[in-house]
Design a protein around this nucleic acid. Structure first.
Lengths: 111, 111
DNA sequence: GGTATTTATCGTAATATTGCGATATATAGT
DNA sequence: ACTATATATCGCAATATTACGATAAATACC
């Protein structure tokens, strides 16, 4: 992320921005989209779906897990991942409140 | 972002991940939060709120604008920024659909 | 035990992001 | 015209992210 003044922000802002950051990569968003359709996946499923190496998929899964977006359960030699709604409620609430509070015409022209 | 295989993803996934990425930085999320409370801002308002230089704030505002999250209107020597709901509807729809489709108990233990 | 399968981690190179000072641009006021 | 105010952009250095191959770790099967 480059030089980031990470200590200057409140824990709630930092935590929520981490969730958004995790969703802010096309590979990770594709994984979430896959889980949205299929319900669960193992690492190998995503390796078949995306043009990335197994090591890269595994890293993306770890980042989604760290952000609280997915969770995994060991099942034999593989790990079954699924969506977690731990943070989705927070995001939903924020976006709803943003939508409700947008003034109708604060800017008429774009710059 | 490092080496990203950006050509491998659908335009819709890329576009949505750009929106999430824009929200995935504490400074930019703070700006959105400020707009949520105040309705509008000029660059100088955010300079007073965050411990970043004016040049840095301006860059973050440009990134939010590029992602379609805010829009700006020239007003004298300053630019009045406010939230745009151009993409918020998309995000809201996605998160709602994720929430609705989460299987209740696909993973009982975390790994 | 030995082998296959599956996932996670390490090390590295390439690239992107961040933040700053300096500077450019543009409008307002005198 | 000159100055002040406000924002955007440039160039740079520091740091973070991404992706990969290689390898480790852990379980399943024979």
């Amino acid at each position: 992320m480059g030089v980031t003044k990470i200590d200057s922000y409140s824990p709630s802002v930092l935590s929520l921005s981490e969730v958004f950051k995790a969703l802010g990569h096309p590979a990770r968003l594709s994984i979430v989209s896959y889980l949205l359709q299929k319900g669960t996946c193992i690492c190998g499923d995503i390796v078949d779906e995306l043009p990335l190496a197994q090591a890269s998929i595994s890293r993306h899964l770890q980042e989604l897990k760290t952000a609280g977006i997915i969770k995994g359960q060991i099942s034999g030699t593989s790990v079954c991942y699924c969506l977690s709604d731990e943070h989705l409620e927070t995001i939903l609430t924020l976006i709803n409140s943003i939508k409700l509070s947008i003034p109708k015409t604060c800017c008429d022209e774009t710059v």
